[in-house]
Write a protein that binds this DNA or RNA. Structure first.
Length: 274
DNA sequence: CAATAGCCCTGGTGGC
DNA sequence: TGCCACCAGGGCTATT
């Protein structure tokens, strides 16, 4: 599943190909993925427009157009956004295709079809609730140790749930949340407000490190994730706990355990994390 | 505010 | 071998 580092890799890939390319035709194979506006308006707002800057906010991709609109894409679990040249085989799970004047195509593909797309005009940002309420993200100027300390000390929920809540940190999901708690040596069940200042400082560093390492390795491909050219990531080789239930801890040799927190699986080492 | 359950969805997996 | 229940989980809503 694409988390923040994966979405950033996709953004960088698209940034190299899309700007100044003009949308000549749109094929909507699965209209219900479009959340706003209705299908006809979605199409009308994009036709003939050219891509400009490709940005990212949390796990949302924001593709600016010269018409002033922004195409917003959230990949959820199995979404992929790939740039393909003319003549390349079509992804069997292609759902929405943006054919470009130069002959290339921007393909939105999604196996489980949980992804969401929007086209926003200026002032419509509130249409995407998750964007409007999103907290600062790692490696950004707004994400400071002071910010994390303040939010954590006031939190009465489990640290794992805290990390997954986008309103606190606009960031990642299950894989990197588990990894970063391992790196910081903190058990996922711990209550945010119970963390000591040294633990918070460690967690702060590890949040940034987990994101940075994920980006450096081109993302994590466990099954579905592909970058904007269809390639796989390499970070799956460096995971310490996620998906390693029953396997040996790479740090202490003990057994990696798994539990459920807030309806999500949490992987951890009971020896290295406290 | 926090926790939880349910919903959306399809393909891979494990059990029989 | 075939079938089916179950699971993966991000974001949202409704409920306690």
């Amino acid at each position: 599943m694409p988390e923040m580092p994966e979405v950033e890799i996709i953004r960088r890939g698209l940034e190299k190909r899309l700007p100044r390319q003009k949308i000549a035709a749109i094929e909507i194979l699965l209209g219900r993925l479009i959340q706003w506006p209705d299908k006809a308006t979605f199409r009308a707002r994009l036709m003939g427009a050219s891509f400009e800057k490709i940005r990212r906010r949390g796990k949302y991709l924001l593709l600016a157009l010269d018409s002033g609109c922004t195409l917003v894409v959230h990949l959820r679990m199995t979404g992929r956004l790939c740039y393909t040249e003319a003549g390349q085989t079509r992804d069997p799970y292609a759902r929405i295709l943006f054919h470009l004047e130069g002959g290339g195509t921007l393909v939105y593909a999604d196996t489980r079809t949980l992804g969401t797309l929007y086209v926003l005009r200026k002032g419509e940002e509130g249409r995407v609730a998750g964007l409007a309420s999103m907290g600062p993200e790692p490696l950004s100027a707004a994400f400071t140790l002071e910010y994390l300390s303040k939010k954590l000390q006031a939190s009465r929920c489990k640290i794992k749930s805290f990390l997954l809540n986008q309103k606190y940190i606009g960031c990642w999901a299950n894989i990197y949340a588990d990894e970063c708690l391992f790196l910081a040596g903190i058990l996922p069940e711990r209550i945010g407000g119970s963390l000591t200042p040294p633990e918070i400082a460690r967690l702060y560093d590890c949040i940034n490190r987990a994101v940075g390492d994920g980006i450096r390795d081109g993302g994590t491909t466990l099954r579905d994730y592909r970058d904007s050219s269809g390639g796989k990531g390499r970070h799956q080789k460096h995971l310490f706990v996620y998906g390693r239930t029953g396997k040996t801890c790479r740090q202490c040799g003990g057994e990696i355990l798994r539990t459920k927190i807030g309806g999500r699986s949490a992987h951890y080492c009971p020896v290295c994390q406290r």
